[in-house]
């Protein structure tokens, strides 16, 4: 039942508490940093642009005392999928691809355009992974939640109960490991009663039959635990209103300047990378 242990690994990134100056920034600043790297990475139309974003991300990682290897290691599980994407790019012929044919294997043409496209997809993914990995390595779970709260704060002032959304995000974060534990218990209980797991059946219908008895009690357990949490929150005086907060993130003039710089960088870099000519019309 090796697959059971996988549940415990269900995390989105991992916080690395190296107490660097990057870590000391306010959550809102970190979100702006995330945007400053993610937006140009997404807008990039060439592999070079994406690789430049990735390099920048790795530089910030050094400043944050997060080992670049730690961020790059996450690429490994994605390799098979990347290989598949590249293979598909090569196998299919794309309409309007007029670039030079580099290699001809029987009916398959590998063109320069396809190659560039594959490289761009791979580089873009790598840049995004580094960016997101950097964000989760430098922003703890509660900072991610506080950041959402701070981003939505203006809405709250307008009377939209946006602060509740931050609570939703916080609860969701907290429940992922809880659900992992519940799922493990349920799968073990079912397996102990002779259900089919891990016996490697390939028949999709049988797999559906095996997963339904897991999914249904998992959702029921999730609802039962919500009920318990509702009581715990109400008992501690929460009724959906505005709250004060223990954690504060004082922002000095230098950090304010950094924020302005990040916003500017996001806009300029996004425009620059998306204006760069896409090679070979893809």
């Amino acid at each position: 039942m090796k697959d059971l242990e996988f549940f415990r690994n269900a995390t989105l990134g991992q916080y690395v508490d190296s107490r660097s100056r990057v870590h000391a920034l306010a959550p809102l600043t970190k979100y702006l940093g995330l945007l400053a790297l993610a937006v140009p990475a997404l807008a990039s139309r060439t592999a070079y642009a994406a690789l430049a974003v990735m390099a920048l991300g790795l530089l910030v990682a050094l400043a944050a005392k997060v080992r670049p290897a730690f961020l790059l290691r996450g690429l490994k599980p994605a390799l098979p999928a990347l290989a598949l994407i590249v293979a598909l790019q090569a196998l299919l012929s794309w309409p309007g691809d007029a670039s030079a044919v580099l290699l001809r294997l029987g009916p398959i043409d590998v063109t320069l355009g396809e190659l560039a496209n594959s490289a761009r997809i791979a580089a873009r993914l790598a840049a995004l992974m580094v960016t997101l990995g950097l964000f989760t390595a430098t922003a703890s779970e509660s900072q991610i939640v506080h950041g959402v709260e701070d981003i939505l704060a203006p809405l709250s002032r307008l009377g939209i109960p946006a602060h509740r959304f931050a609570l939703v995000v916080g609860i969701a974060f907290r429940f992922i490991p809880i659900l992992a534990g519940e799922a493990e218990l349920i799968v073990k209980a079912q397996a102990s009663r002779g259900a089919d797991f891990g016996s490697g059946t390939r028949n999709p219908l049988r797999r559906v039959k095996a997963w339904l008895p897991v999914l249904v009690p998992l959702m029921l357990r999730a609802l039962e635990r919500s009920e318990a949490l509702v009581e715990a929150m109400e008992a501690r005086g929460y009724a959906g209103g505005l709250r004060s907060r223990l954690a504060t993130y004082p922002v000095g003039p230098r950090e304010k300047a950094l924020r302005a710089g990040l916003v500017l960088f996001t806009l300029v870099s996004a425009i620059l990378v998306s204006m760069a000519p896409a090679p070979f019309g893809t």
Binding site: L12, R164, I171, F173, F175, A222, S226, V230
Partner: peptide, 24 residues
């Protein structure tokens, strides 16, 4: 109650994310 709406939204969001993360 508002609290229940918030909690159910959070918990079921976690279920959706969990199902994706584990490929379950």
């Amino acid at each position: 109650s508002v609290v229940r709406k918030i909690v159910v939204a959070g918990v079921l969001s976690a279920v959706a994310a969990f199902l994706g993360l584990t490929r379950l």
